[in-house]
Amino acid sequence: MPKKFDDTKVEGTMIAGVNVGDIIFQLLSIGVPVFFKIILLVFWRSSKIKKEQFNRIEEKFSSIQKREY
């Protein structure tokens, strides 16, 4: 009599009939775009903050120049 395949048994890289490689692939395919979006958001935000800081420094420098003349 042949053995029946039991889906719920953990064998090798199979967990309840789902391949671990498939799970890793799905996590990476979701995680990589999310990671790049977060990096872009952080870069955009830091450049915005630096630009605002530069504008404040420029205004202070202009006011100091006006006082001297």
Rank of each mutant, 00 (worst) to 15 (best):
T8A: 14
M14G: 09
I49E: 10
K50H: 08
D22S: 13
V34P: 00
I57H: 03
Q53S: 11
I23C: 05
Q53L: 11
L27G: 08
F35H: 05
Q65F: 00
S29T: 08
V42P: 02
K3R: 15
F35D: 04
Y69A: 04
E11D: 15
G17A: 11
L28H: 01
S62M: 07
S29I: 07
L40A: 12
I15H: 12
I38L: 14
V32S: 03
I64L: 15
F43W: 05
F61N: 06
I49S: 06
K9T: 12
E68C: 01
E52Q: 10
A16C: 06
V42D: 07
Y69E: 10
I49D: 02
E59F: 03
E11M: 08
R45E: 07
I30K: 04
F54K: 10
Q53M: 09
M1G: 14
K48H: 10
W44T: 09
I38T: 08
S29E: 11
S46D: 07
Y69F: 03
S29C: 04
D6A: 07
R45C: 08
D6Q: 12
K9Q: 13
K48I: 03
D22Q: 09
R45S: 09
L28Y: 07
F61Q: 01
K9P: 00
S62P: 00
G21Q: 04
L27T: 07
V42F: 09
K37L: 11
F35I: 02
G21Y: 03
M1A: 12
E68V: 07
Q53H: 12
K51D: 13
I30N: 03
R67K: 06
R45T: 13
K66I: 02
I30E: 06
E11L: 13
L27P: 00
G17P: 04
P2N: 09
A16N: 12
V32C: 09
L40S: 14
L41S: 15
K50N: 10
A16E: 14
G17N: 11
S46R: 12
